[in-house]
Design a protein around this nucleic acid. Structure first.
Length: 560
RNA sequence: CCUCCCGUAGUUCAAUGGAUAGAACAGCGCUCUUCUAAGGCGUUAAUGAGGGUUCGAUUCCUUCCGGGAGGACCA
């Protein structure tokens, strides 16, 4: 509808002999100002030295016989507001009931092949709340883009070689850990190894030696530990992905990108890269003063993460010939990813042009940054467990059977943490407030779940009472709900275009509030003849909430 | 020292250069003989400071103040 309105205005401008200008048509922040609003008159006012309202009036007079608009009005200081007609909005409700889970789909990415990399935990190390954050955001962005018609491949890139692996294996040897089949023992082994590496020079030498053995696989005892630890880690990650609703299509490992990365750098020494003090470096500041020099091959002739990233770009493309490659990481690597991307534009210009890097913020606790190096790391699993424990007390009051109660706590815990991550703009840190996340009131994941479950409860009750949704008896006044439901596809499209899940979260929260208000003020299954229409509206609201929660990858229990 | 990101109610967050800067939590006061009160209704409260661009600035530019991240052989 936005483009139709834009077209009407352009035509009006031609008829009125106004110069064509760049103007916007968009839903205003406040739906009381119409379903759409344009600033065209404000822009023309200056050029034509006439009051904006006068110009707006002239434009409005040129717009007639549009059956999907109920009115077009001019508002101070010169906005033109467009209100959709009741008939049009009712037609949309019918469309929602018909399309169900497909309602809201867009075509902005139709036919595109997109690969998105996120989560990226390292085997042998903890899957901490930073990974939880990356997974949550990445999964939602993947779903948003998929909803716009793209073919999406989800990728996870994992560091299965390198010093952290040597630290973990060294730790497991020193601690004489017997059951290396348990993930928690590996976390302990890594922490021990990492501490000693910093504090003890002998340990440091041993770990460095071990690192070489791992790299060339020359020691069968080490190989056995390595293989077992890697498998345990990967299996464990898989269990978490299942809880969070992610299914990866591709797994890439540093052990496979390092060879190609190294080769790509070596082939371009003298042109793109240069030798310096024994290492091979890339002077990115030569191309952009905001960038800096980074090492791609160390003195030991080992590829750094930067070099591996070049190899990874190519390996991804060979696996899936993408139109776009999205890489989601923590924003602490923003500057350095910019350097890598610059190098990539010189090595593979066509791949670099298709690559987008997104940096998300950190999940912080009131005590500060979590880090696996300082030992204050919080495992994602522990955080979820903590939330579940607190919640189970609340759930107990509701007398669910233990099995269902556990399902509910799981779903609500996932919703609580995911919501707090997704509700804010990408790139901003999330201060995780236990008390607030556990309160489950107001602006939170469980609020959305609760609202949907409640709507469904009404619909179920209607089945029991044998009343079905219908459009025969339309009320004189429709509510804000009908308007909001219409805007869902636009919000989903915008959230996808801007990689901004928070826009969808805000929309869904507002929609839930509107529905809850409706629920509180109207008896949906009431004694009057209006029940069928109210059920249709309830059904539509439930559908949009469900579709939205699906995009956020927030599970919805049957009851709560 | 340099680069990047960020400063919005007491707190945690929103806001596509637009209209009266939205929520939630905390506080105060209401609200279940009706479909789930994890709900609804009311109420107090904010753009770090100064310049600039603009019809219009939380948003763009600039200076300062404050916080965070990064800056050669880890990632």
């Amino acid at each position: 509808m936005m483009s139709e309105i834009k077209k009407f205005i352009s035509q009006a401008l031609t008829i009125l002999n106004f110069t064509s200008v760049d103007f916007t048509v968009s839903p205003p922040a406040d739906l009381n100002h119409g379903d759409y609003s344009t600033n065209v008159a404000l822009i023309l006012a200056k050029i034509n030295h006439r009051p904006a309202k006068e110009i707006a009036e002239k434009i409005v007079k040129q717009i007639f016989n549009v059956n999907w608009l109920s009115r077009v009005e001019v508002a101070d200081p010169g906005f033109i507001n467009f209100y959709l007609s009741t008939d049009f909005l009712l037609e949309n409700l019918r469309a929602i009931l018909k399309q169900e889970s497909a309602y809201g789909r867009g075509r902005a990415r139709q036919g595109q092949k997109i690969i998105i990399e996120y989560t990226d935990p390292n085997p042998f190390k903890e899957f901490h709340i930073g990974h939880l954050m990356s997974n949550t955001i990445g999964e939602t962005i993947a779903r948003l883009i998929e909803f716009q018609g793209a073919t999406i491949k989800r990728a996870c890139y994992q560091g299965d070689v390198g010093l952290h692996v040597a630290k973990a294996i060294w730790g497991s040897q020193k601690l004489k850990i017997k059951s290396v089949g348990e993930i928690k023992n590996w976390g302990q082994a890594y922490t021990f190894g990492a501490e000693k590496y910093e504090a003890d020079t002998i340990a440091k030498q041993e770990i460095n030696g071990l690192n070489r053995k791992i790299y060339d696989r020359s020691d069968s005892a080490v190989n056995q530990l390595y293989d077992q630890g890697r498998r345990v880690s990967l299996d464990y990650f898989e269990m978490i992905y299942q809880r969070l609703g992610t299914k990866f299509d591709y797994y890439f490992f540093e052990s496979e990108t390092s060879g190609l990365g190294k080769k790509l750098v070596e082939e371009n020494i003298g042109q793109i890269f240069e030798r310096n003090d024994g290492a091979v470096i890339f002077r990115a500041e030569k191309y952009d003063p905001q960038l800096h020099t980074r090492v791609f091959l160390t003195k030991e002739n080992l590829p750094t993460y930067e070099a591996k990233e070049l190899g990874l770009a190519k390996i991804k493309f060979d696996r899936f010939a993408y139109d776009q490659s999205i890489v989601l990481t923590g924003n602490e690597v923003n500057d350095y990813f910019a350097v890598v991307l610059k190098a990539l534009t010189l090595v593979f210009p066509e791949l670099a042009a298709k690559t987008v890097h997104l940096g998300h913020g950190m999940l912080r606790l009131p005590s500060g940054k979590m880090s696996s190096r300082t030992g204050t790391v919080i495992a994602a699993e522990n955080l979820l467990a903590e939330i579940k424990t607190t919640m189970s007390e609340k759930i107990a009051a509701r007398n669910f059977k233990p099995e269902e109660g556990d399902k509910i706590t799981e779903a609500v815990a996932v919703a609580a943490i995911k919501y707090s991550i997704l509700k804010q703009a990408l790139g901003r840190d999330v201060i995780f407030d236990f008390a607030k996340s556990l309160s489950f009131e107001g602006d939170a994941g469980p609020y959305l779940q609760y609202t949907l479950i409640r709507a469904r409860a009404v619909l179920n009750q209607a089945v029991v009472e044998n009343i079905s949704a219908d459009f025969k008896q339309i009320p004189d006044e429709i509510t804000e709900l009908e308007h909001q439901l219409f805007h869902f596809p636009e919000v989903a499209a915008r959230a996808a275009r801007l990689y901004a899940p928070n826009l969808l979260v805000t929309y869904l929260t507002e929609l839930a509030a509107t529905f809850n208000h409706y629920y509180a003020t109207k008896q949906i299954i009431g004694p009057d003849t209006g029940a069928p229409y109210r059920l249709a509206l309830t059904q539509a609201a439930a559908t949009v909430l469900a579709n939205g929660l699906e995009l956020l990858a927030i599970p919805v229990p049957e009851r709560m």
